[in-house]
Every structure is written in structure tokens, then in C-alpha cells.
Amino acid sequence: MIRRLALAALAGLMLAACQEKIETPPPVRPVLSARVAVDDIGEQSFVGTVEARDKADLSFQVLGRLMTRNVDIGDMVGPGDLVAAIDATTLDLTVRSAQAALGNRRAERENAAATVTRIETLRASGTAAEASLDDARAAFDAADAAVRQAEADLAKARDAFGYAELRAGFAGVVTATGAEPGQTVAAGQSVVTIAKPDPRDAVIDMPDWMAGTLSPEASFVVAPQIAPDQPIAGRLREIAPEADPITRTRRIKIALAEPPSLFRLGSTVEVRADRQASPTITLPEAAVLTRQDGSFVWVVTVDEASPAARREGSVALRPVTTAPAGEGRLRILSGLSAGERVAIAGVHSLKEGQKVLVLADGRDGAEGDAP
């Protein structure tokens, strides 16, 4: 019995030792990753149009039927030139009515003034009461106020009559028309658009994240599509404060330096950033681990000895400096170089030195580049 017990205890010890030797290692975790690529704005071009920096929509200040429009698209106008006119019959009648009302009010004031003079004479002789004189003076004050009101009404009617003619406020070229003769136009409705020939801008639409990487003094090369070998220099003048909610692009206005005749208003141009512009690296916000002590990314090191069908590697935490880039992306100012591979998902659950199964992000190309 003692021998049997000893053999059973020895077998148990041997079994425990075998279990310790065959303990399975922790599973290798798959991680979605992408290789860092540089966004070189100088390598990308955008198609835009040449637009006037200063333009105005001319409209009537009163309702009326358009009688004449003296200009068409492309016509040049000078300050004070007659552009269009509406039917002024009703406005003319209003002026005449105001003139008649003013004459009536002036006659009433003269009558009131004569009454005051007569009662003052009677009062001096003691044949008129003081109350009668007070009433006469009050009537004169009311008649005088009525005259001033009628004068204001006449001035208002004359101003409205002047609104029947639409004149250019500055020298420019007609770029658009909004009404035809015979059409009834409302007050404020655009009839003619006039633009100053100079200065001119090249206007393009740029992705929101890319617009966020432009410096205030960014320079561009602008060339007309009909003559791409004749480019001129341009400088960033304005970036739209908000992105278009549908296209997620921002409107960029580029000031053109002394544009030649090829850059006429409305012409199509091709714009690209000056190659001296600094390239940038951007990553999705999900790829950056943000903590109280800074921002970090998980750099993935691939084991080259692993088979191509199952690429294994490890991860290491690296601090980076970031800036907003828009569209759910962050601009990497320092800490990363082009060609390095980073984890772009699950960054909150990785550990330093952890073994991972490297998966490329299929959305960024066959090799997993992060644009």
C-alpha cells in the first residue's frame, strides 16, 4: 500500500511538470496598421476660375416693371452710366401728388398766419380774448408742422422717382444679368452684376484637411488652361472659415500678381502650390493616443523573417506633436518619418513591446500607405 501511494505521488509530480513545460504562449493579436506617407501639396493641382475681387449686384430700391436694360454681359461701364430703368409713371404721379399736398399745406399756413396777425391787432385794442389768440397761434403751429411733413413727403417721392434709374457706381465690366425688359422686378432683386477688372483672384476648392496645412504666406503657381506654359505667381489671400458641408472643401482665393490678358475674368486656370511649400504628414485621429502627458502613436516593427502570409511584429509607443488638420485627421508636426508603419485602430488596448499580427489598411492602398 505504501509503494502504491508513492508511485501515485510520483506520477502526479511528473504530470504537473509536463503541464508547466507545454504551457501555451499568449495569442498574437492582429492590429490594423498603415505606412506613413508624406502629403506634398506641391504635387497636386486644382482647377479654378479667375474672379474679380470687387463686384456688386445692382438692383432697384422700388418695385417696378423693367423698361430698358442698356448693357449686356461683357460690356464696359463707367461711373454714373445708366444701366437700366423701370416704368416711372406711378412714381411720377406720386411726386405730383406730393407737390399738390405741399401747396395746400402752405396755403393753410398762410391763412393761419393771417389769423394770428388779425387777432393780435384785436387783442391790442381789447376787443379779443387772450384765449382766442392762443387758439390762433396753436393753429399756426399745426399748419407749419403740416408744411414740414408735406416737404418731407415730396422729397421722399422725388427720391423714389430717382430710383427708377439704375446707374453704375464704379467703372467695371458686366459679368451677369438677372432680369429682362418687360419683367417685373422686386426691390433688391439683382438686375446687373458689375465687377472691377482689377485686382483679380484665382478661386479654387481645396480639401478641408489640406487647406488647414497652408501657411498664411503660402505661394502658388497659376497657369491658364489654354496656355499652361505661361504661369504666373499667386499668393494666398483668403481661406473660407467653414468647409462646405457636402463636399468638405474650403474655398481658397489666391491673389494674382499683375495678371496678363490671358487671365480674363471667368477663364479656367490650373493652380498648384509652390514646391517650396513644406510637405506634411497626416493621420486619422483614431491612430493617435491622447493622454494627459501628450500625444503618442504605436509604431509597428515588422519581423522580416515572418512569412508573407502571416506578417508578425511588435509595437512601441512613440511621442508625437500634432495639430488639427480637419476631416477627422491630425497633422504630425514631429515624431514620425515617411515610411514608418503605425497602428491606426485599437490604440487604447495595445501594450509596449506587444507581439502583433500586422494587417494593412486596405482603404489606403495595397501596401497600407496612410495619406
Score class of each variant (00 low, 15 high):
V47G: 12
R53H: 02
A113H: 12
D72C: 05
V95K: 00
Y163L: 06
I86D: 02
V83E: 00
I86W: 01
T121H: 15
D81N: 11
R106T: 13
A160F: 00
E51Q: 09
M67I: 13
T127I: 13
R118S: 13
N70Y: 12
T89R: 14
A168K: 05
A113W: 10
G162I: 05
L93N: 12
A98Y: 03
I119M: 10
D134S: 14
E151M: 10
D57N: 13
I119D: 07
A171Q: 00
G78T: 05
A139R: 08
E110A: 12
A136H: 00
A160C: 00
S45M: 07
A143C: 02
V50W: 05
A155P: 04
D87Y: 01
R148Y: 07
T117R: 15
A52G: 09
E43I: 00
Q149Y: 08
D135I: 08
A100P: 06
R96H: 11
A114D: 14
A171F: 02
D87H: 00
Q149W: 09
Y163G: 02
V147P: 02
K55R: 15
Q61C: 06
N111K: 15
D75N: 09
L63P: 08
D153N: 12
R96D: 08
G169V: 00
A107C: 05
A136C: 01
G169E: 01
T94I: 04
R137C: 09
Q99G: 08
A136S: 06
M67F: 04
T94M: 00
N104M: 15
A56Q: 14
Q149D: 14
A131F: 07
N70R: 15
A88S: 11
A155H: 04
A101W: 09
R69F: 11
A100C: 08
G103V: 15
A98L: 02
A101F: 09
A152Y: 05
A52L: 00
D75H: 09
D72S: 13
G103S: 15
A124P: 01
A160L: 01
V47N: 13
G48W: 01
K156S: 11
Q61S: 07
K156E: 03
A143P: 01
A136D: 00
A56E: 11
V77R: 05
A168C: 06
A138T: 09
R158I: 04
A112I: 07
A114R: 15
A155W: 02
N70I: 12
R65Q: 06
F170G: 00
D141G: 10
R118N: 12
D141K: 13
E108I: 02
L66M: 06
R69P: 08
E108R: 08
A152T: 12
D54W: 14
T115K: 13
A145P: 05
S59N: 04
L122W: 14
R137G: 07
R105C: 12
L133G: 12
G48E: 03
S97D: 09
G162S: 02
G162H: 02
F46L: 07
L102A: 05
L93D: 10
L82G: 02
